[in-house]
Simulated scan of single mutants.
Amino acid sequence: MSCMSQCAKYFLCFFNFIFFIAGGAALTVGIWLFADRTSFTNLIAKLDQSDLLTKTDADVIKMMAYILIIAGALTFIISFLGYCGAMFESRCLLCVYGILILVVLILECVVVGLAFGLKGDVEKGTQDFLKDTIAKYYATTSDKIDTVTVAWDGIMSKLHCCGIENYRDFSENKNWTTMVGKMVPDACCIKENDVLKDSTCPINPTSFNTYQTGCYKAIMTAIEENAAIVIGVAATLVFVEVLVIILALYLACCYWRPQHVYRCVEPSGKE
């Protein structure tokens, strides 16, 4: 086998081995969360001295488990096929692997196309989903702070925004307005030196003491401002997927007839 074929083989082995391990880890965590979330959350709480996961709503944990299981299983299976196909020089496995990566690439293009083609519906659906997370899962008291609450507080503080469209989105969380007695969380309030500019902000939000921009708009603005990075990451992902498809099919060609392997890499007439 030529140097080029050897390089392609070991690149695919190394590439798929990394994703094989990552996929296996994600699948293991997902199954653990689904089967016994209490033991997992208690372990994490002991490791990072935090009880965020233990306070997180069971529905959120279940959703995380489903995502990890599906993503982990797909990554595990596809990378396993790629690794074994390259390592054991199996043209069948390499062809299946290349076709699966091609299907993934096509699905990604379809999703992006639908997102642009149905932009209005996608935006509304995304906003409704985000509003639902605030209405159902945003913590009402400090002793119930969970991952959803921490995530939203971090986004609002970092991007200087409040709610999805505006601070009135928190009124949809009835537990928040009735039990806490506040209109908005502290993360929505303008601060100076990490101290609230106006101490009455959580109870009486105004345009002078509260971030007026909705977080959905703030996130979209941040993405647009970093469009070069987003495009670069997307282009790199597509390039890697196309490269892997080409290498897999190239090796499959070389392994098609083992006794004539050199015909794939040397000029005709040399055997």
Rank of each mutant, 00 (worst) to 15 (best):
M4L: 15
Q6P: 00
C7W: 12
F14W: 12
I21E: 01
A22E: 04
L27A: 02
I31E: 08
T38P: 00
T41M: 13
T41H: 02
N42D: 12
L43V: 03
I44C: 01
A45S: 03
L47D: 03
D51T: 01
D51Q: 02
L53I: 00
L53F: 05
T56F: 01
D57A: 09
I61A: 10
Y66F: 15
I70R: 01
A71T: 03
A71I: 05
A73M: 08
T75G: 07
F76M: 00
F76H: 01
I78C: 06
Y83A: 10
L93F: 13
G98E: 09
L102T: 08
V103E: 10
V110T: 00
V112R: 14
L114F: 12
F116Q: 07
L118A: 14
D121V: 13
D121Y: 07
V122R: 13
V122C: 12
V122K: 13
E123I: 06
T126A: 15
D132I: 00
T133V: 02
I134G: 11
A135T: 06
Y137Q: 10
D143N: 08
K144E: 15
V148E: 15
T149Y: 06
T149C: 14
V150F: 03
D153Y: 04
I155A: 14
C162T: 07
N166M: 07
Y167D: 15
Y167F: 14
D169I: 00
E172R: 00
M179K: 10
V180F: 02
V184P: 02
P185G: 12
C189D: 09
N193F: 08
N193E: 11
D194R: 12
V195P: 04
K197F: 15
D198M: 01
S199Y: 12
T200M: 14
P202M: 15
N204S: 11
T206E: 09
S207I: 13
Q212P: 03
T213G: 08
A222R: 06
I223P: 06
E225F: 07
E225K: 13
A227H: 08
A228I: 13
I229R: 01
I229Q: 03
I229F: 14
V238K: 10
E241F: 14
L243H: 14
L247R: 11
L247N: 11
L247G: 08
A248P: 03
L249W: 15
Y250H: 13
C253W: 08
Y255G: 02
W256K: 07
W256F: 12
R257E: 11
R257A: 12
V261C: 11
E266A: 04
S268V: 06
G269Q: 14
